[in-house]
Write a protein that binds this DNA or RNA. Structure first.
Lengths: 136, 136
DNA sequence: TTAATAAATGAGAATGTGTATTATTCCTAT
DNA sequence: ATAGGAATAATACACATTCTCATTTATTAA
């Protein structure tokens, strides 16, 4: 694990970063791949994975290990929480302020050296709510 | 999604449940498979997956979608939080009491119908801490 | 500038986790 | 005992992610 070290800004990396910053959703690697491919049609999926991973290690972006089978990426790196729709899997930001004091609580009640935390809410998003109402 | 409905307690299911209740770790499906196989050598991995999923839907056990590439299972179903070691991937319980009021906060600051939440701490467990100390 | 060296990429193979299929076996109720 | 449905074991399949490696691109040293 490194913090802001020697990472060369190749064209591929730049485009990945720009496209990720452009959206407020939290795309999967494949979705990033699709966005990037419009500008760099010859880029490989492996390159996208490799660089997302690299930039996450570097602290430039956030890798979200939320529920579901795919990892998601976030250009906003400050501590904030997420909510995931159990219907469609989309992930949105939760706007209330983070609670760093939780880490202290956890440290007191475990033998771990606590590094951080993440809160993931689950719920039904607006889009998924409507069709369900119709069914009733 | 169902709550405590008609689920037949086959020998396989009973052993899966017993083995899961026996440990305080939060084993992956594969680890459950290994434990169960000592008592039922002919059981299939698919059966373990199918029944863990079924029992989770049923509310008999908890499916943890924590970080890492594998899902984990927990025989303790009341709301509690977890901490995951970034070194070895093991998952332990965090002992302080849950905060259901967080759901209300989230509901107020999003358009979702909030169903619940989970907090996952990350850190270094005791076992992983020692070798790292030695390296310095 | 050019040669040597190192790093990054693209293509595709390989791995690993989880799900679907299907023939067979096991219950359960007549 | 037998028919009908549920559950199982074995295996094939799907998908996300990582790995390999030959080629390309950038950097460094002369």
């Amino acid at each position: 694990m490194q913090t802001q070290s020697d990472i060369r800004l190749t064209p591929q990396r730049q485009v990945i970063l720009e496209e990720l910053a452009k959206v407020k959703t939290h795309p999967t690697a494949n979705e990033v791949y699709d966005m990037v491919r419009k500008r760099l049609p010859r880029i490989g999926l492996g390159t996208v994975y490799r660089n997302l991973e690299l930039m996450a290690d570097n602290g430039m972006i956030l890798k979200l290990e939320v529920g579901g089978s795919q990892k998601r990426f976030d250009a906003t790196t400050d501590l904030h929480y997420h909510i995931r729709c159990t219907g469609c899997g989309r992930v949105d930001d939760i706007q209330f302020s983070a609670m760093p004091q939780l880490d202290q609580l956890a440290a007191n009640s475990s033998d771990y050296q606590v590094l951080g935390h993440h809160i993931e809410f689950s719920g039904i998003c607006e889009s998924c709510d409507d069709p369900q109402e119709a069914k009733k």
